[in-house]
Design a protein around this nucleic acid. Structure first.
Lengths: 221, 221
DNA sequence: GCCCAGTGGACATCAAGATCGGCGTGCAGG
DNA sequence: CCTGCACGCCGATCTTGATGTCCACTGGGC
């Protein structure tokens, strides 16, 4: 009577409960330092039930990672679809990054700070997502500058890195100094100013490169 | 005579040999997947000697990490001291990042892709270094724009992130399409254009913030 | 010729992921 | 209403793999 009876629960609900607990622990400790014991305890279940829902620790982690990546991709995609004004697109994308990092569940840590990047299953997912976003930014850059696709992609990758790092810094250090949107807009302004002024000055010294008929290497999905 | 007699070796040389082997293994596999057995074998010594030079795996890793961070800090510092022209400073700093990543020993992986960020000893070192570099960039930004220190620091952090990610992308994907300096200069141009145009457009909407007499939070060293 | 220092192969220790026998619960049938 | 059954959960356990240490050997110096 005192000990609450194990709380029989519909399978889906139990699963999300496990996922939430696992995310909390992974976010807090990283993959390796997280113990299945701890996850089980936090979820309020016993270890065997974890393995009833997920065949291994890695599978559990991947489920969370996929959810996080999906969330980020969806958010940035929405930001780009909201408008056709490239300046606004950049701004909205930056805001999406900051919002993603600001999500209290901390899922961004699985995406941006995973300690499991050596596991191919993880690195391919993350890199594919980053590449996808870089491609979208590169498209904007291509539209607004005369740069070649590979150059645009490199810049897009850089901007995506800037967004990641700046957002995390803001969350960790500056969230008391400026609002999320202020910070995001600041970065977006930097980014946009960088892109806008490009065609005029873009050969800093000489750029000597034959057209090079390469196919960009990765045509992922 | 056949088996090379254990090769008595001066302590320093033996130590660097161990460090080189350890770096190779850590770079290849990350911290967790790396085994002390493997490191010993690669170094051509036996496990006890590892522990004669480094009391634990973590200490060994930290020694390598410190060396890598030192190298990066030194390179970027040199880049900034080379000139007083801020535009050149940005360019040289970017080149330093790309050169650092391009170093064939792969030490950048310990700095930018460590799977041990959850270990405080690691994270404080890396974050301190990143902060130091961001501060330097922020100083340049402050000189060239009217931004507040915290804003400049956020931008500096973003640029530093951009440098990291772009450099790694170049190494992994684009190093056959453009030279290191071309890629670095491209990123530097983006960065500089972003900074240059700033004071004119920097309030994208309204920026409402009381002066706030905060002390920037981290006055590291 | 003997002693000593440093090396290497083998071993203990331990933590963490992944699994087996009891148990309590709810239900169906008599 | 009572009783037997089936089901899903929990405590305790096993295994594995990696870190960090011990004993025998070899080879040189006095």
């Amino acid at each position: 009577m005192s000990i609450v009876p194990p709380a029989r629960m519909p399978k889906e609900q139990r699963r999300t409960q496990v996922l939430d607990a696992a995310r909390a622990v992974f976010v807090e400790s990283g993959y390796y330092a997280a113990g299945m014991d701890v996850i089980a305890e936090r979820a309020g279940v016993s270890k065997p039930v974890l393995y009833q829902h997920f065949p291994s620790k890695l599978d559990l982690y991947l489920a969370l990672l996929d959810a996080g990546l999906e969330e980020l991709l969806e958010a940035t995609d929405a930001a780009a679809r909201e408008t056709t004004d490239n300046k606004l697109r950049v701004q909205r994308t930056m805001r999406a990054y900051f919002a993603f990092v600001d999500n209290p569940d901390g899922a961004y840590r699985l995406v941006f700070e995973s300690d499991l990047m050596n596991e191919p299953a993880v690195s391919v997912r993350v890199e594919a997502a980053n590449h996808e976003i870089a491609k979208r930014i590169a498209k904007v850059i291509s539209q607004d500058t005369g740069l070649r696709p590979d150059e645009a992609l490199l810049l897009g990758s850089g901007m995506q890195g800037m967004a990641q790092v700046a957002a995390r810094r803001w969350l960790a250090h500056d969230s008391v100094l400026m609002t999320r949107d202020e910070a995001a807009d600041l970065i977006a302004a930097l980014a946009w100013r960088g892109i806008r002024g490009f065609p005029l000055t873009h050969p800093p010294h000489e750029i000597t490169h034959p057209p090079h008929d390469i196919a960009m290497g990765a045509s992922a999905d």
